[in-house]
Amino acid sequence: MSVVVATSLADAVAALAAQPHSTVLAGGTDVMVDLNAHHAQLEHVVLVNRVPELCTWRFADGWLEIGAGVTWAQVQRELSRWVPALAEAARTVGSPQIRHAATIGGNLGTCSPAGDGLPVLAALDAVVHLVSSAGERALPVGEFMVGPKRTALRAGELITRVVVPVTTGFQGYAKVGVRNAMVIAVASAALVVDEGTVRLALGSVGPTVLRCPQAEQFATDHLSTGMSDAEVARFAELARDAARPIDDHRATAAYRRHAVGVLAARLMQRAITRGRAS
């Protein structure tokens, strides 16, 4: 096993060009678990948590650029005014110990269907920026996430940053797990209201994060007139219909489908209450 401790983006790209099938290690909260359990035999590792270019964020022209190495503790602490739903999701990632190490780029790279940040990024229409020795490219997060723990990342490519629009309407994240802390989502949902357009993304209820076009269209058509309880219930039903859950050791498919409808309705109620207040 070889380890390259990259200290600049150029270093990291060069190391990945030399060994394109290297494992990229940032916070270690996924990779080290496999390594400790001897599930993974890693041949080449490129450590990127010392790359300054990856560990910063900036706001410019209505967009927030978040470096892939920004930790969930930073998102929780520093980004709540720009992306409140992402900060809410950050607060539910693991424990303080995990949040100090785990990064937004790692969440994307691992691409677990249960990744807490991913429904929010999907609902925000985030764009993922990648770099390799061949150059840069950018992908909408919905195209980046291909399946369970599968992404569009090519050999030798590195996630550099994720770019999200800063919106002014309601945004929120909700999650169901077996306990309050240190828990993997059994079902999760993120709702974003952007200039009257509603976007809803679901986590842990499909092979990867799912958007809900029918629920989104229904809510966009009805939100401006204020939604009735029956309309919120219909929105939740359309969200449940969009889910493609499976039975596993954490929950049954039926429970997940039910739970994600409850979360969608709860978030929509919050959005309506917020709309009345403002």
């Binding site: 380890v3 401790v5 290690l25 080290m32 110990q97 100090h100 190490a101």
Partner: peptide, 19 residues
């Protein structure tokens, strides 16, 4: 296995020592 690295609380089992 909690330790502080640069004053940040982390699990030392998830830190690659080489890094």
């Amino acid at each position: 296995c909690t330790v502080l690295i640069d004053e940040q609380l982390v699990c030392s089992c998830l830190v690659l020592a080489a890094g």
